[in-house]
Design a protein around this nucleic acid. Sequence first.
RNA 1: GCCGGGAUGGCGGAACUGGUAGACGCGCCAGACUCAAAAUCUGGUACCCGCAAGGGUGUGCGAGUUCGAUUCUCGCUCCCGGCACCA
Length: 862
Amino acid sequence: MDARYEPETVEHAAQAFWEASDAFRVTEDPTREKFYCLSMFPYPSGRLHMGHVRNYTIGDVISRYQRMRGKNVLQPMGWDAFGLPAENAAMQNNVPPAEWTYENIEYMKAQLKRLGFAYDWSREFATCDPSYYRWEQWLLTRLHAKGLLYRRMAEVNWDPVDQTVLANEQVIDGRGWRSGAPVQRREIPHWFLKITDYAEELLEAIDTLDWPDAVKTMQRNWIGRSEGVEMDFPVDGGDPLRIYTTRPDTLFGVTFMAVAAGHPLAIDAAKGDAKLAAFLEECRQGGTSEAALETAEKQGMATGRYAINPMNGERIPVWVANYVLMGYGTGAIMAVPGHDERDHEFARRYGLEIRQVIAPADGTALDIQAAAWTSKEDMVTVNSGQFTGLSFQAAFDRIAEHIEQLGLGERRVNYRLRDWGVSRQRYWGCPVPVLHTEAGEVPVPDALLPVVLPGNAEGEDPTAPLAKRPGFVETTDPATGRPARRETDTLDTFVESSWYFARFACADNDAAMLDERADYWLPVDQYVGGIEHAILHLLYARFFHKLMRDEGLVSSGEPFTNLLTQGMVVAETFYREQGGRTTWYAPAEVVVARDDKGKVTGARLQADGQPVEVGPIEKMSKSKNNGVDPQAMIERYGADTVRLYMMETSPPDQMLEWSDSAVEGAARFLRRLWRIVHEHVSTGGLPAPGTAVDVATLDDAGRALHRQTHETIAKVSDDVGRRYKFNTAVAACRELINAVSERAGEPTHRAVVHEALEAVVLMLAPVVPHACHALWHALGHGSPVIDARWPEADPSAMARDEVELVVQVNGKLRGRVTVAAGADRDTVTAAAMQVENVARHVGGKSPRKVIVVPGKLVNVVV
RNA sequence: GCCGGGAUGGCGGAACUGGUAGACGCGCCAGACUCAAAAUCUGGUACCCGCAAGGGUGUGCGAGUUCGAUUCUCGCUCCCGGCACCA
């Protein structure tokens, strides 16, 4: 063993060993307990960023820990490879998206290997490989047959200059990002996946998941289940107006109706009304973006039509209102300004009647003209004819029943969740496997799958959408031999990432999408990734899992049993304002000044020595110039230091603040650990592996270290295995090393020092696997540490003869006392009263009460 | 606006079930080694008073429950994240 810790040498040796022994390749073994640990696979953008490093280190620590627990651990890695950035890069550099993507994959794969992650690379794939998306296409043809994949008209952002569809993020301030032309809304046919069929199941199953509450709540809100009534309001001289309401208890308070600008009634009414037609057109112009809707004021116009409130026969005006959404419910509402804030705002603006029909049950008076009162709790109906005097639930039930009896409508559950629009009119994606033949729309037969994305011919625009590639579009109907056209839409890249976790189980199968191995590995036991995927990716993946289950491909109902969402990696920012412009400086270019207590007093730019402003701590980003390149850190300190820093600095679900000097501290610890082990192994013989410490021969100091070793094992096992608190686990290891360094070199304590060092090396092996690989060998072990078992805490080692208790007087700490471990209450109390400082504070008075918490404290109340 | 999470030394954080607040680390201060520096090692480091022993204060703010509250309850303030006209 080298006296000096050389991370590069150590890490290359360990990685070479793992590679040569195929250490992380796994096969299915029904006799062993499996553990499938998955980190969200990356988009191959070019280089890893710190967020990736954090994500993958967390996953790797869990995987390596579970392996040491004896589980059959699968930890795969792949590439979420389709998507817009490849097209952008292609346009900038004139390199085909595929080439750019595969080059990035090669580079990033080398980076991942350099970090020493325990991946089974034999299962690697990129989603842009035809061998992957072939099965996606195959599944889609099955879904098409079931009606779960269907086509209908939908609005898109259309760039009239570039003649192309734009993604939402390509629309900047209502203009195309490249052309600068105002974006138009255009209706074109779109493919949809019918996720709404699964809304109820997706909602109910959330309760079964061991996920962070924040994520579960977000998914529940996204699905947005509501119970209400769908019913008709008769219209003078027209078809009845069907509306949806969750508040049938307020039906007597309806003073107008409102329909969306796209509603048939509005369009019909506009036929003879130029002003109304102009208003509808204006509503259509407004952007589809959320930002536009957010700021939009409530606007509307009367249609001249009137509806009849079936509850009381009143004749009420029908308005068009821009706050009514065509895509939810029926695109029409009954407006109750007294008890709905939006309706209230609208009514005030247009001078419509505001009427109170519910009131606080305790009789409190309300000024309903000033503000809407919307409570469902502690309310009672008023001014509601035969339904007056009821609670929300009673009014809901009786009025709903009444409407059902009148044949005007029925109770109905609605969801906010919409069907998933999966069409993209772009090149770099998975082609939708459909042909348009003379007989209509038909799925591509299995034998003709995959529909391969065409490559790029010389001189061709490498990003031209499929519709502009005649060689791709024109084909023949395999059934008739007659001319046919291929579908030219490609799929949203979220589709590929919705089932990749399953394909890892059997990535080499070229005869089926999934096989029986999927049921061995699934569901994923631990999924690790960013909170930014809390809704879409995680919901779509759950949906696809159910689709695959209903296709008989898997038997489980949910894909991810346990979810860990890691926090962002953030860093300090530094800037200067010059002439109204802000220039951001990288933390590495800045020297921070401190006072003699360590408090930051200012910062100067290294280059010119002049002050810069200290900005807020923010997520690492190019715009704030505060990113730290993992590659540079790995080259400087080695992978283990970076891994250790990431794990010991914050709990995984919290933000992690980057600090160069704290990274230095992690490096220091590894050097120290190395040196302590080196001194230990070079100053005497080593016990045979597995030799137990002879407790009988230990003195007090030796017993204390022996005890601390086992207490640390117990704590770290709990922190890593149950709590996922890697920061406190590392801290406990550091404490044990601090204790070891006090005993190191003492011949009488050699056995307990050896035991402690072995425990630390085993417990840190998941975090700093390379260093521990070398140290484990140095401690006399022939087999590698990845095959060692996680240490077990020995309860007898942790037993204490004596315990130190804290003594309080009136709840204030006044002293300490050491008593026998099993001492009874009276003994403990007596001992506590003898402590000088305690006696002084009790002051001879007789205690009113003495509280004894065994093993912890004594509180004397006087 | 609604939903979720949070606020602890100069900084990151610890205290898991109501029981020693500040583990571990960073930074800072002092010392050892060194011609010097780096590296390493030792000690100190919440704040105030005190040579010390010790005392007082202290977990965003204000109340409450309790022998005892960072932890529980109520009412605020601020910060972060998500959703946002879903009838």
